[in-house]
Design a protein around this nucleic acid. Structure first.
Lengths: 232, 232
DNA sequence: CGGCCCTTAATTGTTGACAGTCGACCGCAT
DNA sequence: ATGCGGTCGACTGTCAACAATTAAGGGCCG
């Protein structure tokens, strides 16, 4: 891997706070973890990262602290940091938090959305339908993310969005490990019907209906994801 | 101030992750900030804290990184970290997130609460009524926190609770700076009526009513707090 | 007299070295 | 064979020194 210098950092397009090696490392290591580059439960060796990025251990440790706070790694004194293992129980709890945040986004979007946004929502839902017909689960996945981001944006609450994003990252840890063939076309079809309900509630400006639609969508998604684990 | 050694840290009753100086410092500095020990917008000098706690700058910097991630301080490269200034807009946004989380807690509590907890809720509301009559705003404040914690506990979702707590800390930054005589007895009376509605909805096991009651309570609290700032 | 530049002190950024701790491995006794 | 204890190695925890950057103050020039 290329040596990471401060000059590399400045070239990044982030608003602020990315000039220091520690901040750059935090971003870089996070990316590595989320893209599955690190096996789950793996210990993150300070020296390894220090050599990999051609820096000393100080900045690496600072980056680790930030990741601990973000909940992506676990810290055990005198042992080091480990890629966090997300249990099924924790994933279920996280989904409830996600439902809280996303349903709020839907509710706010219902009062704050603009005309163009509604058109975009409907377009995305339509494109997802097409992706399903094409059996294009890759494309569906991306469109799905786009729709969720679009709703979040329409809520016009930065704090809500960043909290949501942080949570999503944690959930990625769970999905990365327990990825199974959960993308049945059936699931996608049902999911997209829920999307349509969400969008129409927002379009109608109906706060409570939007709340319910978004809430149900997340909780149903939870059931769909964790279904394979239920031992009945 | 007393020198902070690892031995001091171990004496703390935390489950894990508090053995290192950095973690201890993070807790200590956070406490200092939240208790208003640091003027808002103040730069946190690394050497100052290093000498104050008789440690080197390394652990101090690690503690700072964690606080940055927690959103309590702002980081400007080559300048240092500053106690975060929370604007009115940010506070309003944070209240919306809080409403999302707390209303979810109420909703979950409505399905998961136990008999003893309901009794405790009602007791707290009653005690708050008495505190109002006594004009004991100090006592009311504490009981208020207790009720909110109790509801969170009844929701039985650790992730929800920790996210909520992190947000509350941020809101403290706003209240610390803009503390005005907002604790009118009128406000307390109205607030406690809302508490009663929350508790009874939980007691009835009515999810949607609990959701609404908790949601409204937070949003009304927001209006009561930020009322003085509105220039009509 | 005001504005620009240079110097300088203070503070952050980074490093390498040293100390402390934990787990693994190996040998021994049972 | 198995369980226990000690030794060793690898890694984390901490520190103090050095480099780089910033902001402030004073002097010079227009």
């Amino acid at each position: 891997m290329k040596p990471l210098a401060t000059s590399d950092v400045t070239s990044k397009g982030q608003p602020f706070g990315v000039r220091s090696l520690a901040m750059a490392l935090r971003t870089e290591i996070e990316k590595m973890i989320l893209q599955g580059g690190m096996p789950m439960g793996e210990r993150l060796n300070e020296n390894y990262f220090a050599e990999k990025f051609q820096v000393s251990r100080g900045p690496v440790r600072e980056a680790f602290r930030a990741l601990v706070e973000a909940g992506l790694v676990e810290f055990i004194p005198n042992r080091g940091v480990f890629v966090r293992q997300v249990s099924l129980e924790q994933a279920l709890a996280a989904y409830e938090v996600r439902a809280a945040l996303f349903s709020m986004a839907g509710r706010l979007a219902a009062t704050r959305r603009r005309k163009e946004e509604i058109a975009r929502f409907r377009g995305l839902v339509h494109d997802m339908d097409e992706a399903i017909e094409r059996n294009d689960s890759e494309g569906y996945y991306k469109l799905n993310l786009d729709l969720h981001s679009a709703v979040m944006e329409a809520a016009r609450n930065e704090r809500l969005a960043s909290t949501y994003q942080g949570l999503i990252k944690e959930l990625h840890l769970f999905r990365a490990k327990n990825l199974r063939l959960t993308d049945h076309a059936d699931h996608a079809r049902i999911s997209n019907r829920e999307h349509a309900a969400m969008v129409e509630a927002i379009a109608a400006g109906d706060e409570m209906r939007a709340y319910q639609a978004h809430f149900d969508h997340v909780m149903n998604a939870r059931d769909r994801l964790t279904e394979p684990f239920r031992e009945i």
